[in-house]
Design a protein around this nucleic acid. Sequence first.
DNA 1: GTAGGGTTAG
Length: 411
Amino acid sequence: MVEIKQIHARLYKTGLIGDPNAVSRLLASSISPDFGSLTYARKVFDEISRPNTFMWNTMIRGYSKSNEPEAALLLYHQMLCHSAPHNAYTFPFLLKACSTLSALEETQQIHAHIIKTGFGLDVYATNSLLHVYAISGCIKSAHLLFERLLERDIDALNLFCEMLIAGVKPDNVALVISLSACAHLGALDQGRWIHAYIAKNGIKIDRILGCVLIDMYGKCGDMEEALEVFTKLEKRGTSEWTTIINGFAIHGQGEEALDLFVQMNKAGIKPNLITFTAILTACSHAGLVDDGKSMFKSMTTVYRLNPTIEHYGCMVDLLGRAGLLMEAKDLIEKMPLKPNAAIWGALLNACWIRGHLELGKQIGKILLEIDPGHGGRYIHLARIHAAAGEWDQAVEVRSQMKQRSFKTSRV
DNA sequence: GTAGGGTTAG
């Protein structure tokens, strides 16, 4: 930082401060997180009367990687006001900021600018767009979130089609993002189409592409094709086995999932924490309580894996669905981790399904305390009160929700 | 001209 200030001072002395090349270099080193300072870079930048595109981009890049990425968007706005021209570098930096901010609206506007300014064929810009659409979607209610999630996946798929129509060759990353969009949407036809595209163009199926193909077929419910892809893979490691096991798990085919787990062990592939999430999920739909319990136990005794909060969540779900509510509650109270809203939520759900209204009310109260911004919890508790004939309590919970929902804001 | 984006299984 000291060096940068010295260089800055020397630029003044020598009159080089008017040289765009020298100032550009100064800016580029100032935004370096190791030895620069963004605040200082901004001071230098603000002194420049007519910054060129490189300078604007450098500042946007600096902010996009900083802890105030929103400043990158503000700067872009200024850039537009100054009618400073874009180039191909502007958009990836800007979209990086959008992705950390989950700024979907801004992304859509930038998308329009990309098309308007003629960068719609730039692979960097379009892949950055695909990425933001694939990950953004933070909004206050789960319902809206779900809609947004679908929306971004649809956007990602449309963008993929546009890429093909425009003659832009998608690389593996674009294929991965588009296939995961298909997986989220359950869009089997589109997924099959992309798979065919991969085959037709002789694109090598690397490990990530392999996993996402299996996952796409798995999520879409075509387990036959998922198995086909799985068996044809050159190498099958932990993630490939986990993906196929999870496919069977989410469709309630617990026996098949467990069978694959045995085969996985025989093949000498070590399961990890994610494998066990899939295994415990498999036991929970399929009602395999004893298998689930012994699998959960084997995590520590056989595989030396420490169960995470998710694994406890799976167990609570498993026990709860089987009607073993007190055992589930016991597990929560004795677990070495701090129970979170998801864990209590799983138990509350089980109370509701099994009609244990008293316990449900207790859990519901705990949940409202630790997760007051979650509308679904209120509705759950209100329904339990209503089912118990306590209409006034149900009304009370609903009005609490109404009051508090005004306070909850966008995350 | 200088600089760059994106990755899988829960």
